[in-house]
Amino acid sequence: MIITARNPDMPAIPAELFTPETADSLEMERISREHHSAAYDGWIRLRKNKGALVCLDVLALLTLFALIAPIISPYTYYQTDYMAKLKPPSAAHWLGTDLFGRDLWTRMWYGTRISLLIGLCAAAINIFIGVLYGAISALMGGVVDAVMQRTIEVLVGVPSLILVILFMMALPPGIWTIILALSVTGWVQMARLVRAQILRMKGMEFVLAARLLGTGTWTMIRRHLIPNTVGVIIIQVMFAIPSAIFTEAFLSFIGIGLAEPQASLGVLINNGYSVLRSSPYMLVYPAVTIVLLMVCFSIVGDGLRDAFDPRMKG
């Protein structure tokens, strides 16, 4: 290029001072900011929510106790002592003992651990199936989408709790049966949300722009679709975990969940209810723990929803 209007007073710049700037035009045009995931964005907004942070700490503390307390306790959750039945709290048994002389402190935290395990596993399976189902349905479109959506419409009509109860009856009792039963219909909501979110994004301008600039399908999924769906998934998980814990407690309470000597919050509430007249404290511990879990999950879930989708009000 020839520069015609050169300032005559300025000395000529020697050619060797110029260094070639190798700009990759493709690199410049790529529409993708520095990787600052939706999850990270959400975290920045969540940090301002004091209530949610406190609840997150409480959850972490409860999890820590559930993991460690049964290990360092001198008792096991199934060890009976008929000399010390239904004892009130004391130095030897911090929360007292139950009908079979089992240490309630140990059983409480062991039960919390099992309840958390059930909640996490059920939620994990629900994410896995739900995200896969929703994503395939939304990305494939056409006949595949139609068939998958009709299937979902049939499943949505099923009262999930009844189905869970039937599964519990048909399969041998245990933790994995509960998790399996909870997963039978639990993923449907997740699949619908993921599909809706992906469909919404497919219609957005930034996706169109990225496609026009030649972004391939996999890059599109990896860089744009997944990061923007993470928020929806995380929020749904925060509601799926307590819901699974709640259902387990309900099943164990009506007597078709976990069996003795296994402990979960539901089993403990059931035990406590049976001796409510003589030792009401036995019901109080697991009840308080489950309420604390539910409240914290629900507040953190609300906080996450506000953080990830500021337009939605809780």
């Binding site: 307590p242 407690a249 007249r277 489950i290 539910m294 409240v295 629900s298």
Partner: peptide, 22 residues
């Protein structure tokens, strides 16, 4: 609202039965 969805209704029922009833 938060407590209403967080406290299992069978716990509420057990407490009602114990206090109000018994």
């Amino acid at each position: 609202a938060v407590l209403g969805v967080s406290v299992p209704n069978f716990v509420v029922a057990a407490l009602l039965q114990y206090y109000v009833g018994l």
